[in-house]
């Protein structure tokens, strides 16, 4: 993960960004596969086929908003960031915190009355919304949990799946 990040960061800092076009060929330093959910406990880590997504999406900024050379696409962001230079960070986790609701994060947010970006999504939310949102919109790609990451044993127990097939919960009451 970090190696390709460094490559891109290096490319950006060398000013290579100015000659970037959003074509897949230009993103040569980018990994073909990225292991996601590395620290998952309920769901297993899995290989994300980066190369395939690059081929299909063409626009890096479709996922990596304001990071890889394309100008911001979201008109709401463009209000301020029309001419902002790309940020050096490319990976989702570089900006989106894995612990968006920790006491420290919340206290900081609460204290900083002038902060504009008060609603920055956490890492898990950013990734799921990005993936599932696009898959739903395009009508292609997995949207179910286990279609991307199969459950671990702990995950099975967590969902009590062993009891799948029993009568629906609501059938009992009323």
């Amino acid at each position: 993960m970090s190696s390709y990040k460094h490559l891109i960061v290096a490319a950006l800092s060398l000013g290579a960004i100015s000659v970037f076009t959003p074509l897949a060929a230009q993103c040569a330093a980018v990994p073909d596969s990225v292991t996601l959910n590395q620290n998952g406990t309920l769901y297993k880590p899995f290989a994300f086929n980066h190369a395939k997504h690059i081929q299909q999406l063409k626009e890096c900024a479709g996922c990596h908003h304001h990071t890889t050379g394309t100008l911001v696409l979201d008109p709401e962001c463009a209000r301020c960031h029309q001419n902002s230079s790309p940020t050096a960070v490319v990976s989702c986790k570089g900006c989106h915190s894995a612990k968006p609701f920790s006491p420290e994060t919340l206290a900081e947010k609460h204290a900083d009355k002038q902060r504009y970006h008060k609603d920055k999504m956490g890492l898990k939310g950013a990734m799921h919304q990005s993936c599932i949102g696009c898959h739903q919109k395009e009508g292609a790609g997995p949207v179910g949990c286990q279609e991307c990451h199969p459950r671990t044993e702990a995950g099975e127990a967590f969902n009590s799946s062993s009891r799948l097939g029993a009568k629906p919960a609501h059938a009992k009451k009323h």
Partner: peptide, 14 residues
């Protein structure tokens, strides 16, 4: 423990 697992989508019927 629930009557059916938490991935049982049939609970959405009502």
């Amino acid at each position: 423990e629930p009557d059916t697992s938490f991935d049982d989508k049939s609970v959405f019927e009502e």
